[in-house]
């Protein structure tokens, strides 16, 4: 686990995917930018009643900024954690990794710890850019914020493991990851409340642990939203854990399938 952490950091520093980083950061910054410009130039610094009713707050820019930062966090974490194994597969090291007696969960925890440290830097940069653009965020409740971070990490790891199995089984990452990202951006309530969505889409969103992690995050960061974060926190842990268990059980057959494919090729 420690070894995985150190090794991934070394690789990161040697060949940091700057282009990817700029790409992800740009998506976040520009989402905030569009909201900011629309809010000032079209909304005249005000939002409609439906937003206030749904969120219990009128802090639209704060809502979008926190959501964009969370989306950056989730995207980058999924890229690191879910793609770890398919990257090893492509580089031909998956086989040697599977030969070692190491178990999969500690391996994933190692990858996650390293991913958390780089992603934290990236999210900080995004929030700093947003403040430079003039977005003012309220001071969050530290305990709830911590809970939100734990919830988000559990949600991301939980979703990444079955996703990793899916990528290995399909031998493909690009389509899978981007479909997940665009679907999550719509379904989980990153930049708008899920109550805006049609009922069917809303239910899809409820099934994703990230949606619940976001509710904890809103409780921590949205002024005026007086909600109890702990039920959402509990649901997030349970859902995330369930995803993780399902993922761990389908990972070995997916690995076998990937190795089988590369043996044939």
């Amino acid at each position: 686990m420690g070894a995985t952490f150190v090794r991934n950091w070394r690789i990161t520093l040697r060949a940091y995917p700057w282009t990817y980083f700029v790409g992800t950061l740009a998506t976040g910054v520009l989402t905030i930018g569009v909201s900011l410009l629309a809010y000032r130039a079209i909304g005249g610094g005000r939002v409609g009643a439906s937003f206030t009713a749904a969120t219990g707050s009128a802090d639209y820019l704060g809502y979008v900024t926190v959501g964009a930062a969370a989306l950056t966090f989730v995207t980058r974490m999924v890229l690191w954690v879910a793609k770890a194994q398919i990257t090893e597969y492509r580089e031909g090291t998956l086989e040697s990794q599977l030969l070692t007696p190491a178990r999969r969960l500690p391996y994933l925890v190692g990858v996650t710890a390293q991913a958390l440290s780089t992603t934290a830097v990236e999210v900080t940069v995004l929030v700093a850019v947003a403040s430079a653009l003039g977005v003012r965020l309220s001071v969050p409740d530290p305990l709830v914020l911590l809970a939100a971070m734990v919830a988000a990490t559990v949600a991301v790891v939980g979703m990444s493991v079955p996703l990793s199995a899916l990528m290995l089984a399909a031998g493909e990452a690009h389509i899978t990851q981007n479909t997940l990202f665009t679907a999550m951006a719509l379904l989980c309530g990153f930049t708008f409340p899920t109550s805006y969505l049609p009922a069917a889409a809303r239910w899809l969103g409820e099934a994703l642990p990230v949606t619940w992690a976001l509710r904890v995050l809103r409780a921590a960061t949205l002024p005026g939203a007086d909600v109890d974060p702990w039920p959402a926190f509990a649901v997030c842990l349970v859902l995330g854990g369930a995803y993780l268990l399902v993922g761990l059980s389908i990972l070995p057959p997916a690995e076998r399938r990937a190795l089988h494919r590369s043996a044939r090729a």
Partner: peptide
Amino acid sequence: LFSMLLWPLLTLAATYYTVLPVMESATA
């Protein structure tokens, strides 16, 4: 199919909902 139809449509929907609160404001 994905990059030229599905992703643009999902992104379009997310964009629409993101700016909707502003468009509903009294002065918009």
